[in-house]
């Protein structure tokens, strides 16, 4: 321990001129001292410091305690954000089919003039697929929707090519898409599939339905907008696979005019002009008062 004794220091120290006299006079000055309140305050602070323990640890411990809630809160926020992100990731996939279903309902209830023509992109895809397909189709190119492909990828993050082909090659498997989109997909795809490969499509559809049933059901629960479409699709899907004729038949007596016109449009888009024109002529003959949309009227008048 290195210590200094004042006496030693002062004894060896140099004395300044007149210092002794000044020192003697200084020592006669009033020896003021701190007041009792000041003494009490200092001693109280010293006692408090001893009672509270080590100051460094005392300051550290609350700091650690203060960090825990922050860390916990951060983790909770992270989990919440991840959960929201996961849900948001699924939302865009479920929304388009819901809109498609809504369109289908409108088409069923509204006059044909109000019904929009088939979605251009969907028709385009249908057309492209049809063109690339061989005429006698053992595995007919489907009229698949973009949403179907998206959902197929979502449902199986690393899908095998076979599964993807099934998802796209099975128009009669509406459950492969979100349930809400099933009616539209079924309506649009049914004629082509029915004509080209009814049995294969039905079997594939059933297989895909069984593989994916849980997820669409869960998604349907979260989408209140498509509730009616969901119910219809659930009712229709199991029936469609074992009994394909109602869907596979090109013409359905129970179809509404809008649905029938929609099928005719699909035939035209698939380049089955003769059949489409025949169906259009039949439609006009059966419902002469039904106002035909301009595009179909043109087809009817064209020789």
């Amino acid at each position: 321990m290195n210590t200094h004794r004042p006496d030693d220091a002062r004894s060896n120290d140099e004395r300044l001129p007149g210092e002794d006299e000044l020192g003697a006079l200084y020592r006669k000055l009033p020896r003021k001292e701190p007041g009792p309140a000041l003494d009490a305050a200092v001693l109280r602070a010293a006692a408090a410091a001893v009672r509270s323990g080590e100051p460094a640890a005392a300051t550290l411990r609350p700091a650690r305690r203060a960090r825990w809630p922050v860390a916990l809160g951060s983790a909770a926020i992270l989990v919440l954000a991840a959960g929201l992100g996961w849900r948001m990731r699924d939302m865009p996939a479920s929304t388009p089919p819901a809109q498609a279903g809504a369109v289908t309902v409108q088409e069923a209830n509204a006059p044909a003039a109000a019904a929009p023509p088939a979605k251009p992109e969907a028709v385009g895809e249908i057309q492209a697929d049809a063109q690339h397909a061989p005429p006698p189709p053992p595995a007919p190119p489907p009229a698949h929707l973009a949403a179907d492909a998206v959902m197929a990828k979502r449902a199986a993050p690393a899908p095998s090519p076979n599964l993807q082909e099934q998802a796209t090659a099975v128009p009669a498997a509406p459950m492969a898409a979100p349930v809400a989109g099933v009616p539209a997909a079924a309506d649009r795809a049914a004629p082509v599939a029915a004509e080209q490969a009814p049995s294969f499509a039905a079997k594939s559809a059933q297989r895909v339905i069984e593989q994916r049933r849980p997820e669409p059901a869960a998604m349907a629960n979260s989408n209140a907008e498509a509730a009616s479409g969901v119910t219809a699709a659930r009712a229709m899907a199991p029936l469609a696979a074992p009994a394909p004729p109602p869907i596979d038949t090109a013409r359905d007596e129970h179809d509404t005019p809008a649905q029938e016109l929609d099928k005719i449009r699909r035939l035209l888009a698939a380049d089955h002009r003769d059949e489409a024109r025949q169906r259009l002529a039949d439609f006009h003959r059966d419902r002469p008062d039904y106002p035909l949309p301009d595009d179909l009227r043109t087809q009817l008048l064209t020789p």
């Binding site: 210590t3 200094h4 004042p6 701190p34 000041l38 602070a45 410091a49 080590e54 100051p55």
Partner: peptide, 27 residues
């Protein structure tokens, strides 16, 4: 003076863990 006196002792109290007797306490 009262304020400085109290503050001086407060610092002594706060620094007691770090105090190293390498120099004279008075210094």
């Amino acid at each position: 003076a009262d304020e400085l006196f109290q503050e001086t002792w407060s610092r002594v109290i706060a620094a007691r863990e770090r105090y190293q007797p390498q120099a004279k306490f008075t210094t």
